[in-house]
Structure formats: C-alpha cells, structure tokens
Design a protein around this nucleic acid. Structure first.
Lengths: 230, 230
DNA sequence: CCAAAAGTGTTATCGATACACCCATGT
DNA sequence: ACATGGGTGTATCGATAACACTTTTGG
C-alpha cells in the first residue's frame, strides 16, 4: 500500500486566498490541477516528507505546516491503492513558481476558482479527491483564525494591524470593523509584540509594526461574522 | 509500507472517562497496554477499517467515529514501517469486554491512569506511541464538547439535562453550575429535542428526556472554565 | 485641501456567572 | 420531614458591535 503526502499550500495573492497547484502533464487526470505531493520515503517522518516536497516545489522552508487529515478511499487513485496524508501549509509572500521542471508546472490560483459551490463536484478541474482536500484545508485555515494566531503565518515577520486584518478579511471573505479589530488584537496580552518601528507602507497615517507574540491562542476568540459559504 | 488504524474508544464508566485498551500478549511491548486496531484491508475505506475493528472488539456498531490524525514516524513500530491512522470513537454504555479471544484481552481503564502527567513519558504502560495518540484523542473530545454536540455521543439515545451535564463534568474534570447549564443547552434552539417523556432515574424531581437535536453545532459555545491539565 | 489609514472614546446590548428561590419526587 | 436533583428569576459583569471622532501621513 503506497503512502503519500499531499499539501494544501495557501497564501494571500492579489487580495485573494490562493493555493499552489500543479498542472498534470500525464495520465490520469492529464491537464487537471492537483495538489503538490509525493511518496513518503522509508526513513523520513510524514511531516518531513511534506516539508521536503514543499521545498522542492517552492524553494521555501520553515513555513507553518500542520497535518490536515488522511484520505485513503480505495479507488481514489485509479492506478493503485494510495493512502495520502494531507498537510496544510501557509506562506507569507508567495514566491514566483515559474513553469517547474518537466511537463508539470506549478501555479498560484485563487481557491474560489476551485471551490465555488456552483461548480459541479466531479473532478473536472482538480484531480483525484483533491477538491475535497483543498476544501478541508481552506476550512481548517478559516476556523483556526478564530482562536489561534494562524493569521500571522500569512504575514511577513513584521506586520501592521491593518495587514493582519486584511488577512482575516480575505480568508473569511467578510469586512471587519478596523477599530474594533485593532482594539481586540492589541488588547490580547502577548498576542502581538511591538517592534517599536513604524511604517507608512500602505498609505495613510504611519502604523506600528508588530511581530508574532508568544501567545498563539486567542481567548476569547475573534468570531467570524457569518460562516463563509463554500 | 503498512497502513493500520488505531482507535481511541472512549466512554464514561464509574464516573470516569475510560478508554478501551488491549493487553498485549506478545512482543514487542509484551504486557503493555495498546490501543485496539489492525491492518487496513485492500478494499475497505479507512473509516470502514476502524468500524470493523471496533465491532470485532466490542460487538457494537454505529457509534460516533471520526478521524483523529495519522502517526507514521519511522521506528514507532520496531518491526517495520507502519503508518497508523488514528480514529476517535465514543460509545454510551460500555459493553462488558470479558477477556477477549486469545492471549490479548481488552479492558476499560480510566484515561487518567495513563495520561497523568506525573508519570514518565516512556512507554512503560502504553505500547508504541499510543500514549500520545490517547492524549490527542482525549484532547480532541474535550475540545469538541465546547462547540459541538459531541457530548451526546456519551449518552444513550434519550437522556436528561443532568446526565448530559455529568458528561461535561467528567470529561473536563470540572464542576458546572447545573442551573446555568440547563438554561444554556435548552436555550440553544435545535440542540436538544424534547421527547415529551419524563424520568425519575437518578432520584429527585422528574426530569424531561431529550434526544439529540438537528443542530450539532453550539453557538455560542460552552467554554470550559479552566483547561484541564494532562 | 483631501483621501486614506491609524488609533481612541463611548454607548447599547448580549451572554456568562453567581446566586436566591421554588418544584416534584423517593425515603 | 427532608434529601435530592429539576428548573426559573434576576443582578452583575465583561466582551462585542456600532459608530463618532481625532491623528498623521501622501498626493
């Protein structure tokens, strides 16, 4: 029985939540998109396999990486029985992924393109059961923003409160009150650590720069106004 | 590479949170306890494998079953590379599991016996990495009580508000205010469905009997007073 | 000056908590 | 009568939501 890892790598690009997808050059699902991934080697942990595949595909290391779930229905891959452990990864500034090595090329695509519920459920765009995995990954990210510091994984090492708020707004697809959001995140002790620096990037009045704080659990949570649809 | 399922089967027994564990009759970890589990067959889904193992061990079917996580470090099983998909299962009235078939015998044991943080981390009691899996399963159950109807999976099909509260108190290891709890769960529309029946089991004034309602998500959640330790 | 984003203040309202209190049964 | 658990009422407190308002930059 083959064991693979598949990775839902998310980022914020052009004011959209985007995922890294591979255009398949061969059968099955030739021409479809698929999640990056590959076989687990005999002597590496599952997380190490995911990190290795990520680095091969993007060149980036050290981003947020967590296990998402395992997908092993017989027949999910027509060639053989494959049990795939899915990982969720988040990266701040999406590296350009031009072309890729062989016939397979990697691209950033807005997740809405693939998850919009008006689309048919059949794998017309995404290979295997990767639509479900992508959906689960996006839902995990959306949920964890509420009670954890996960959103900072979409920001660089230093960021403003406004930039952090944009992450919430884009991932949840809602508008948040900037004033209340500011009070909430700066008021949660240990959540954000001020650098002392200011920045004017983004225009308007200069904003303080922050780093991730030690408290990576948000209590009470930030509740999303209305659960996002797809 | 071998793929197995391991099951954290929890129940409430003698006012304690208890797990079903197998006493190992052979090497490795002979004499240790281990989670029930086994190999995934070529033509069954992962969940079906877990359900099958559960039925073989307890005779029970149809209980709550959800995927917990996948554990696949090289060396976690000294005999070979084994990737194990762990499932969390909950059952209301623990069936007696006398002896078992062969040298391996199943028992219900309070989880505190194995998770108490004063114990050493080495697998002196639990085989493989099963202590970590058990800990993750208990933590998942504790967390999900807050915002889901998971607690009802510990109750029979009909239960009183008091019985449901006992589940929370035992799983979380805290005391809850009976009056506020009552208001909370009966006030969440669609969470509990009154049967119209009353019962006097448990003594005191007769209590209404309820069934699980359609709403299996609790918003706003019931927050546990202070996170349980181990 | 104006637009845009950063922050602060204030108030209404909702939900949780901590109780006091009454109800209906078994012994 | 009294113990036991079921259930309602109510005041207080903390967090959120809505929004008025000031601050500081760039164009």
């Amino acid at each position: 029985m083959a064991v693979t890892v598949d990775i839902v790598l998310l980022t914020i690009r052009d004011d959209s939540l985007a995922a890294l997808l591979i255009r398949r050059g061969g059968e099955p699902f030739k021409g479809c998109y698929a999640l990056p991934g590959g076989f687990v080697q005999p002597d590496e942990t599952l997380a190490a396999a995911a990190a290795r595949e990520l680095e091969e595909e993007t060149g980036a290391r050290g981003m947020h990486l967590e296990q998402l779930g395992t997908y092993g229905d017989p027949g999910r891959d027509p060639r053989m029985r494959v049990v795939s452990v899915a990982y969720l990864a988040l990266i701040p500034n999406p590296p350009e992924v031009t072309g890729g090595s062989d016939a397979e090329s990697a691209e950033w695509s807005p997740v809405a393109t693939f998850l919009d519920s008006t689309l048919p459920d059949a794998p017309s765009l995404l290979a295997f059961d990767h639509r479900q995995i992508l959906r689960d990954g996006v839902e995990r990210a959306r949920g964890k923003l509420e009670y954890s510091g996960l959103a900072t994984a979409f920001c660089g090492s230093e960021f403003t409160v406004g930039e952090l708020r944009r992450v919430y707004e884009i991932v949840w697809g809602v508008d948040l009150d900037a004033r209340n959001f500011h009070r909430k995140v700066t008021g949660t002790l240990g959540f954000l650590e001020p650098t002392g620096e200011m920045t004017t990037r983004g225009g308007g009045r200069p904003a303080q720069l922050f780093r991730r704080g030690a408290t990576q659990t948000l209590n009470p949570p930030i509740l999303r106004p209305s659960p996002t649809v797809f």
